[in-house]
């Protein structure tokens, strides 16, 4: 670990000022990922700006009936908040599918969005990695890539975004509130993370000196017909090979609204408006779900070890949509797949 300066931000404006003053500084809240990366010498911030005491811990209803979640709300608090449990159980379920109770207690919502890939080459400073050291090359493309991306990859990087929470947020159409020296702005969660293209060192579209202040959920919560299914190499405490967030509104057996997002397959949560549009107005049947899966997985490409993910994702999408349609969401406590 490198030596670093430490500052405690007095307020959001102070955090932005400190961040703007030092391009090599990093914000720290729960630190569950950043500290690991610092210990491995992957992240070497010159300064840590501690924002953990800023007043960004509220969960409140918005005027239009949605929910505004402060960036520093711990993941656990969010998952177990009554309004989230009742109105956005998909989000609660996705959060509980990730990490461990201890990590969820420490990790903040904003930090969850900022967590970095678990690509082993990114973590090992002895190997080339474009994300860690731009221009050195991608070791995963011709290396061990069993759990790497199948969608939206580039010749520079095939890393995945490891977050479960973000997959549910993508499906729910969440917005990210951002503050910076030039004021405040809001972006859709699906536009917050980016694809690697030729700049894989950039995970998100957050600008220099910007800070996440809140996540906003639109009113539609899909509390009746939803499921989050995470497929992994052991039954807990592993990153997704493939995960699926599915949410439906049904009129009888007809789909009036559908949301579908994949995790573990791309550099960002993967959502396809085309796949969702194809479901609208259709009966909730395995055939229609399969067609939506095919649309969602359009353009998927395999590398040497991860070809299985394409078929796995297709099957997982169908299964998750079946779970959602039958109002039997996947339990995160009982590992038998519903």
């Amino acid at each position: 670990m490198n030596n670093f300066q430490y500052s405690r931000a007095r307020d959001v404006a102070d955090a932005i000022r400190l961040l703007a003053a030092d391009p090599a500084a990093k914000l720290i809240a729960g630190g569950t990922n950043l500290i690991d990366l610092m210990k491995e010498n992957v992240e070497r911030p010159s300064r840590l700006i501690d924002i953990s005491r800023l007043p960004l811990r509220d969960i409140e209803e918005t005027a239009d009936g949605g929910l505004r979640i402060g960036a520093l709300v711990p993941n656990s608090d969010l998952a177990y908040h009554p309004l989230v449990e009742q109105r956005y159980p998909l989000l609660a379920s996705a959060i509980l599918a990730g990490a461990s109770a201890q990590l969820r207690n420490m990790a903040s919502v904003g930090g969850n969005l900022m967590q970095r890939t678990r690509c082993p080459y990114f973590y090992d400073t002895a190997t080339p990695c474009n994300k860690r050291s731009p221009g050195t090359g991608c070791s995963a493309i011709d290396g061990l890539n069993r759990n790497h991306a199948i969608l939206g990859t580039s010749n520079s990087c095939i890393a995945t975004n490891p977050s479960d929470m973000s997959v549910a947020l993508a499906a729910l159409g969440a917005l990210v509130h951002i503050a910076g020296s030039s004021g405040q702005r809001t972006v859709a969660l699906t536009d917050f993370h980016r694809l690697p293209d030729d700049k894989p060192h950039l995970d998100t579209n957050l600008g220099d000196g910007e800070i996440i202040t809140a996540i906003e959920l639109p009113p539609r919560g899909f509390a009746r017909n939803y499921s989050y299914l995470k497929i992994r190499d052991r039954l807990s405490y592993a990153f997704a090979l493939v995960s699926v967030a599915a949410a439906l509104e049904l009129e009888g057996n007809a789909i009036s609204e559908a949301r579908l997002a994949l995790g573990g397959v791309a550099h960002k949560p993967w959502r396809s408006l085309e796949a969702e549009a194809a479901l609208r107005g259709q009966a909730a049947t395995p055939d229609h779900f399969g067609r939506a899966a095919d649309l969602l997985l359009q353009g998927a490409t395999a590398h040497s070890h991860n070809g299985f993910k394409i078929e796995l994702a297709r099957r997982a999408v169908v299964r998750t949509l079946m779970q959602a349609a039958s109002a039997t969401p996947q339990s995160q406590a009982h590992k038998k797949i519903a």
Binding site: Y121, D124, A126, T127, S139, D142, G143, L144
Partner: peptide, 8 residues
């Protein structure tokens, strides 16, 4: 990774 002879 046998290109690096390194455990990943």
């Amino acid at each position: 990774d046998h290109r690096f002879g390194r455990i990943m």
